[in-house]
Design a protein around this nucleic acid. Structure first.
Length: 108
DNA sequence: ACTATGACGCTAT
DNA sequence: GATAGCGCCATAG
């Protein structure tokens, strides 16, 4: 394994259950890099070329805002994917984010 | 080794 | 509520 930070992030993201979402900070913390939330997002940039597919659309910021939606094509794909999985999104923000937020540290 | 960058997080104003 | 600034840390050049 490359054991790169990216791959570790990808693994966590791939473990996110359908209909749930996670935050960059939570994932970073689960990896033991609590302060490297930026790295998680940075890794997501590679998610587009990563295999197997990484449900990056399930990863949002601590506010539940779809910050990275512009990295999708089209940018509306992220919101549609979430709604498709039962996640309600309003104004580029996950509704009831606190309720559906998935904590890797707790679930794992 | 150093600098620049980045899908973040938090606090202050 | 919106904007601005700082910190935090891994990757790329």
């Amino acid at each position: 394994m490359d054991a790169s930070f990216y791959e570790q992030v990808f693994e966590i993201v791939r473990l996110i259950p359908k209909g749930r979402v996670s935050s960059y900070g939570a994932i970073a913390k689960a990896l033991g890099a609590g302060g490297s939330a930026r790295m998680v997002g940075y890794a997501m940039s590679n998610a587009g070329i990563a295999h197997p597919k990484v449900p990056a659309h399930r990863v949002v910021n601590s506010s539940g805002l779809l910050t990275g939606k512009f990295h999708f094509s089209p940018p509306t794909l992220m919101q549609q994917m979430l709604e498709q999985e039962g996640v309600k999104v309003e104004n580029d923000k996950v509704k009831d984010f606190k309720k559906i937020c998935w904590n890797p540290l707790e679930e794992l």
